[in-house]
């Protein structure tokens, strides 16, 4: 994804998911396991603790396909996931990271 421009990103119909999660060992496994069991590739992942570190925010870049709605519902069901927000590929979070991947 490092070489993708903003337009190319949109052309591939990607989506950015923003998850608020509890911050402890295993939470990431729960989240990515939902994708890997469906052979649904996660193109990019970014995680940082927020505030006092009790919770983290996970950003996922995924291809937009017909399974995405079901994926979001499945992610929402995880006990350690507090909220899920869905953004379009134009979201800046990964685009601004690109300079670290050159």
């Amino acid at each position: 994804m490092n070489s993708l421009t903003r337009t190319e990103n949109q052309a591939l119909a990607r989506a950015v998911l923003e998850l608020d999660v509890n911050n402890h060992a295993g939470v990431m496994s729960h989240v990515v396991g939902l994708f890997s069991r469906r052979a649904y590739n996660v193109e990019a992942i970014l995680v940082m603790p927020v505030g006092n570190g009790q919770t983290s925010r996970i950003w996922l870049l995924v291809n937009e396909d017909e399974r995405l709605e079901q994926m979001v519902k499945q992610v929402e069901k995880l006990e350690d996931v507090l909220a899920v927000r869905r953004h379009g590929a134009e979201h800046e979070v990964f685009i601004r990271l690109e300079e670290f991947f050159r």
């Binding site: 709605e69 079901q70 519902k73 499945q74 929402e76 069901k77």
Partner: peptide, 8 residues
């Protein structure tokens, strides 16, 4: 009871 079953 499970919203993820709707429209699955």
């Amino acid at each position: 009871i499970d919203p993820s079953e709707l429209d699955k």
